[in-house]
Amino acid sequence: MLTKRIVPCLDIKNGRCVKGVQFENIRDAGDPVQLAKWYAEQGADELVFLDITATNEERKTFAELVRDIARHIDIPFTVGGGIGAVADVEVLLMAGADKVSINSAAIRNPQLVEDLAKRFGSQCVTVAVDTKFTEAIGWKVYARAGTVETEHATVDWSQRVTDLGAGEILLTSMNNDGTKAGFALDITGAVSNAVSVPVVASGGAGTMQHFADVFHQANADAALAASLFHFRELEIPVLKQFLKGQDVDVRI
């Protein structure tokens, strides 16, 4: 059967892996290629590399690093950060990335999602949706690394980008990110049930039970975490054994 994916995320700044807590207070957590190889050996199902400075500082993405990663690991990986045009994506896919993740650019120009799907196929187009809940306006989508509120309601936006050709949604709850209090089960479930494509849940993982919950209760297809894995607070083989014991289908 198709298994639920465990996805470590490596935030990249200047070629090094870092992790922001609530997108701030960045810490250095090592060499991306070495970490990637280690995660592949540990049983990670996929990896995500986000060039976290790219959006804010308008930096171009990191094709050389992508090439280096592709050369060394034999599991799939997604790259994102600062992608604004079809040409950016072509460079990254040709360097060996399997999927690209676009975020602010899709909000600026939704047509980009359709253009990418037509040119490269939906299977390599992940739309990253950063979302935040407030009592006043509910779950809204945020752009530019979570700094700019948009007009889009989260479920509507997820459906729209899926209709345009997104092959996967990477949903990050800014309320939960960095809290280690668990994934945002309600919005993850709402998005997963509203779209026909796989949904990767992100933000808030702190315990093994949180992963079981997001798979069982929110119908997530994959779950992403960063610092939890980077600082070895949770080892992937232990997590997968736990999930198997909880009747979650995982690759062991």
């Binding site: 059967m1 198709l2 298994t3 199902d45 299977q123 092959g167 996967e168 026909s196 494509v197 297809d221």
Partner: peptide, 11 residues
């Protein structure tokens, strides 16, 4: 009824 694309590790 399952998600499409079929994406991930299968047997």
């Amino acid at each position: 009824e399952l998600k499409v694309p079929h994406m991930g590790w299968n047997q």
